[in-house]
Write a protein that binds this DNA or RNA. Sequence first.
DNA 1: CTGGTATCTGTCACTCGGTGACACTATAGA
DNA 2: TCTATAGTGTCACCGAGTGACAGATACCAG
Lengths: 197, 197
Amino acid sequence: MGEGLRERTRRAVRAEIAEVAIGLFVRQGFDNTTVEDIAQAAGMTKRSFFRYFATKEDVVFDGVDLTGEKVVADIAARPAEEGPWECLQHVLGAWQEEIHASEQVLATLRLIEATPALVGRLHQRRTEWRRRVSDALQGRPGVDIDAYTADLLTNAATAVLDAVSSEWVRSDGKAKRSALLEQGFRQLHVDPNLRQA
Amino acid sequence: MGEGLRERTRRAVRAEIAEVAIGLFVRQGFDNTTVEDIAQAAGMTKRSFFRYFATKEDVVFDGVDLTGEKVVADIAARPAEEGPWECLQHVLGAWQEEIHASEQVLATLRLIEATPALVGRLHQRRTEWRRRVSDALQGRPGVDIDAYTADLLTNAATAVLDAVSSEWVRSDGKAKRSALLEQGFRQLHVDPNLRQA
DNA sequence: CTGGTATCTGTCACTCGGTGACACTATAGA
DNA sequence: TCTATAGTGTCACCGAGTGACAGATACCAG
């Protein structure tokens, strides 16, 4: 019907692997957990695990890393008279709202912060994504900005995002992320006149 | 005399490994080059390679990644009446000046940008280093800022650094990094009143 | 219901990054 | 010259990830 049972089961299996794996990671550490441990706990082979996730790290970002296409699309959809910085603030603010502040997410973020390999992988993905955001920012109708400025603002926006995430974890999930984000974007005031030689 | 011949030869060997390795990486790609390739080209065993570099990635950052202790020390040494943002600008500007704009550095940066694994490793190191910078910023006598603001400014400063690096590579090393850095720090104007509930 | 086809799975074998242990050699320093 | 120390090769090993093959399973036609 409409969208296939196979895909549904596949996503269900993915979700269960992720849940089992993160449980193991939190309990005994990322490095002390082998893929075979995960596969066995999920009732499958090591080979089958890699048919659902390309790397051992990716299983962690399954529920978080929605570094979405939607953000890129939303940027293009913002009104043309809006400045690039406000555009980023609105789009990323809306994106952040969608990540529900569950205990699961908090545990995952803690796990990432405590595991260098995961930090690396996260920023690796972020970098690819950032390039697309920067391009979207440049391609926006109305204002035209050079590549350097687009990169600068995009990097700065993710800098705010990272700081918000850190502070949120530091407060055990009690801080209001939207307030932190707004504060961060306000403190990094962007000079409106983007003139240059 | 005074500082040992052994250390000198060790550093020389390190440098030669790095040179040989980067040459291979540039010619045939990072992923298509095995550690045994490097070791053989440098006249040693795989095992000996790992006695000089902890990972295959680290060999690339040998000449670049001086994410130094000096930066952290310099932050503490800045005059107390200086704001945190200006402090970061001065220290990182001085740090950046020390990286001579050689063709070798340019090729290395290109290599990093083209290789996801290297991007990940770079940001992984950056993250550890950033934590220390943020702590140094908080520990500065005179002004006291909260952890969130310190993280925010530190992240933003590295955001500028990354944008400068990208633009510099994009211009084939012809752009003036100091000018870009100054422009970046100026455009991200930090609100001087850091008041909060 | 039946057959064909695409998909999922386990098994095996393999590559590559990285590590521990051991024996051997060269060197620094008394 | 003798001894402690550091560097080296060899070997065996682990874990992440991949390619190939064969068997099972589910979808969809007729």
